[in-house]
Amino acid sequence: MGRVNSYLFTNFISTFASLFSTLFLIMSLAFFIQIARITSYIEITFFELFKLYLFMLPRVLLFTMPIAFFVSLAMILFRLSKENESVVIFTLGYSPNFIARFFMLVSSIVSIFLLITAIVLIPTAAELNGNFIDYKKTIAKLNLKTTQFGQKFSNWMIYIQSQKNDINGATYEGVTLYSPQINDQRLIIAENAKIINNKSNLELRLNNGKIYDIKDDVWHQADFKYMKISTIANNKISKTRSFLEYWSDIDTNKQKARDFTTYILIALFPVATTLFALSFGIVTYRYEKGFVYFGTFGVLFAYFAMIMMLSSKLFIAILSIFLLFLISSMLFYKKTILKRY
């Protein structure tokens, strides 16, 4: 790497690191909110929370790195132009094509990394994430809370007045269960109950209570000393598939086809828009102020809007959107940069 390339790359990396870390933090918070929803039906430790985050890390990288790369490249070139550094580079005999070739090489390396992330790492992480959640469900202990409505145990609505904890686990006091069937309703009131995880078979063991069966406005009451209600958790943990097996049904699975198209186009975004970044960033600041902010926002909006509209078209969308922006960036670069410098 020559001195000029080293200088450009050093300036670019400093700006990229700052912007990428900010976007990475914001995106990570958004994914942490998704992870927090999982804790509403399974119990996980702090280490397991971090493990779930690692499973989502490839998607975080895919959605933050291309945007950070494009915006950072445009902004660093604009800053160098504002400080007349780009003029000095051109005065030394380096053409804009010299800068373009270097950053096209860098963007190609970034896109290759992102393609591997999209095609290989994201499917693998998704499989591991799904299997981990299924496994946690099989060993879960229901985390029921007292004096709260809307909680469920299998098909039963459950309400608990109080809870006592000892070395044998939690004992629920004043338990009420209701099965809201249309024509045959059932109400159970028990003095106390325990939840036992018996080889993935969750059991609610009730003591000293009454059962009320309600059908056609006729009530039947029965007393019981001991009752057990069981529900079998999903213990069918699937085998982790390879990324080829994961993407094998994109021709029939519409959601997976949209995901594949979206991921590939986002991965190709740095290559498709590098020349746009150069066109917006390289200006003669003494005579023109440029439109770097409007330009970068416009390209981002147009690219991702087209992904949203055409993602169901799969390979047609990938080729058409990528080639459209790549060729447009070449023509725009030739018109705005090569004709002047």
Rank of each mutant, 00 (worst) to 15 (best):
Q151K: 05
Q151N: 02
N192V: 09
S230I: 05
Y172F: 15
N207P: 05
K199D: 07
I189S: 15
I139E: 03
D217I: 04
I232W: 15
A193K: 09
N201A: 06
Q181C: 09
P180S: 03
D166G: 02
N143Q: 05
W156Q: 09
K228N: 11
I211G: 07
N165W: 13
K137W: 12
Y226G: 15
R241C: 05
Y159N: 06
W156P: 06
S162R: 03
A170S: 14
I229H: 00
A170H: 15
V175G: 04
V218R: 14
L187F: 01
T176I: 15
F243N: 10
I182G: 10
I195M: 11
I196V: 02
I196H: 00
Q221C: 12
N235Y: 07
D216Y: 01
L206D: 02
T240K: 11
N235P: 07
I211D: 05
D166T: 01
V218L: 12
N198H: 13
Y226V: 14
D216P: 01
K225G: 11
P180I: 03
L187A: 01
K199I: 05
I214G: 00
E173N: 09
K210A: 06
I139L: 03
A190Q: 03
W219K: 11
I160M: 09
A170D: 15
K141C: 07
Y159L: 10
L206K: 01
Q148H: 05
K164S: 14
I196S: 00
W156T: 08
